[in-house]
Structure formats: C-alpha cells, structure tokens
Amino acid sequence: MVLGSGAGVIVRISAGRLARRRPPPALCELACAGVALVAVSATAGATTIGAAVFGWWCVCLSTVDVLVRRLPNVLTLGGAGAILGVAAATGHGRAAFAGALLLAAPLLITHLVVPRSLGAGDVKLALGLGAVTGLAGPGAVILVALLPPVLTAGAALFLRLRAIVRGGGEATPQVLPHGPSMCAAAVLASIPMG
C-alpha cells in the first residue's frame, strides 16, 4: 500500500506534466494504492511487480485522458514498446503481439472509417493493452474488445441522468474519454482468476 501510494505521487506528477493540468489531490495515490493491493492479492513474485507497473501505467494514462481528452504517444507507444519488448525477452512475444494486433486492428479500422468516433490515441493504447491481455489469453482480449464501449456508454448515461436530476436536462452532452474504460477493462481482464 505504501509503495502504491508512493507510485501514485509519481503518477500524479507525471500525469500533471503531460496534461499541463493538475490532477485532483490524492486521486492518483489512492488509485495506485488500490492497484498495488490488487496486484499483491492476485499475483505472486515477479508477476506482482509487472501487474503493479501495468496498473500504474493505466492510472497515468487514464488521468491524462480525463484531464485533457488526449493520450500522449510517450505513454501509449512507449508503454506498448516496453510491454512487447519484455514479452519477447521472456519468451511470450507471440502471444503479446497477437493480442496487440487483435485489439488494435479493429480500432484502427473504426478510426479510419469514422475518425470522430474513436481517437488515434485509443488505437495506440490498444497495442499495449492488447499485448498484456494477449498474455492472459484469448478470453481476456475478447473482454477488452467488448467491455470498454459498455463502460463508456454507462458513464455517459450516468452523467446525463445526473445532469437531468440536477436540472440541466437541456445541457449539451459531454464527450467522454474512452481510454479509462479501455484501461479498466484490461486491468480486469488481466487479473488471474482462480
């Protein structure tokens, strides 16, 4: 928990610099402490470290995306390169590459056909998330392909209903970042079950 909170400080500072805006106080620290708790509870040994670092990367990406609706290349492509490199070095390159390709290809096609529906940052993020979930198996990749649109739509519906209840029913619907839903689904899908 202490290590997670310490990582949260680093994530908050990094996300703030990348977004050029300050994240809410203690949010990154709490999220990273939660990630560390889940990583310690669900994994063992070196896998725990990898799971925690992956979760912290997702917190940083999600924070930047929420703050500025943008996913920086240094995080998306840098993370994907690191994940694919570590997977290849440990003999799991094929599974990671297949997961990256299976998750990113449909998003790339969607982005090219209807650019306003999905950002290029989401496509780049899919490379790293697909690589990690590819290591967890085909079921994890399918979950990460199907769950994020449901999470993003659910968040949009919640925010819309909240605006209506508060008397802002005529307010223009806001655009929500899709990266946090993608990251949440990937973290969920990569947790070993049983």
Rank of each mutant, 00 (worst) to 15 (best):
Leu151Thr: 00
Ala19Ile: 08
Arg17Ile: 15
Leu108His: 13
Gly194Asp: 10
Gly91Val: 08
Arg17Pro: 09
Ala100Arg: 01
Gly8Tyr: 07
Ile83Ser: 05
Leu157Ala: 13
Ser190Asp: 08
Cys32Gln: 02
Ile49Val: 15
Ala80Tyr: 00
Phe54His: 07
Ala82Ile: 15
Gly93Ile: 00
Ala100Gly: 01
Arg162Ala: 06
Pro115Leu: 06
Ala82Gln: 06
Leu108Asn: 10
Val114Cys: 12
Gly130Asp: 02
Thr152Val: 15
Val74Asp: 10
Ala156Asn: 01
Gly119Asn: 07
Ala39Arg: 07
Ser62Tyr: 09
Phe54Arg: 00
Val59Tyr: 00
Ala126Arg: 07
Pro115Gln: 08
Val175Gln: 12
Pro138Ala: 15
His111Val: 06
Leu102Met: 12
Gly55Ser: 02
Gly55Cys: 09
Val35Gly: 08
Ala153His: 09
Gly6Met: 11
Cys28Leu: 04
Leu30His: 11
Gly79Lys: 02
Gly139Pro: 06
Arg12Val: 04
Leu77Ile: 12
Arg116Phe: 10
Ala87Gln: 02
Thr47Ser: 15
Ala186Ile: 08
Cys60Asn: 09
Val86Tyr: 10
Gln174Met: 12
Lys124Ile: 05
Leu71Trp: 03
Val74Tyr: 04
Arg166Ser: 14
Val86Arg: 10
Cys60Phe: 02
Leu157Phe: 09
Pro72Lys: 07
Ala145Thr: 15
Ala89Leu: 15
Cys28His: 05
Ser117Gln: 13
Val175Ser: 13
Gly99Ala: 08
Ala155Pro: 09
Val40Ile: 14
Val113Phe: 02
Val113His: 03
Ser62Val: 00
Ala51Cys: 00
Thr48Ile: 01
Leu143Ser: 11
Leu84Phe: 02
Leu67Tyr: 01
Ala39Lys: 03
Ala46Ser: 15
Ala163Met: 04
Leu125His: 08
Ala100Val: 01
Ala131Trp: 03
Arg12Glu: 06
His111Gln: 12
Leu61Phe: 11
Arg69Leu: 12
Ala163Phe: 02
Met182His: 01
Leu157Ser: 12
Leu159Ser: 10
Gly154Asn: 11
Met1Asn: 13
Trp56Phe: 13
Gly85Ile: 11
Leu18Ile: 02
Val35Ser: 10
Cys32Tyr: 00
Ala140Asp: 05
Ala95Pro: 05
Leu108Pro: 10
Arg22Cys: 12
Leu101Asn: 08
Val66Thr: 14
Ala44Ser: 15
Lys124His: 12
Arg94His: 15
Val68Glu: 13
Asn73Ala: 13
Arg21Val: 07
Met193Ile: 13
Ala189Cys: 04
Val187Ile: 15
Ala184Gly: 09
Pro177Gln: 00
Gly16Ile: 04
Leu103Tyr: 06
Val59Gly: 05
Arg166Phe: 12
Gly45Glu: 08
Ala89Trp: 11
Leu161Met: 14
Ala80Lys: 03
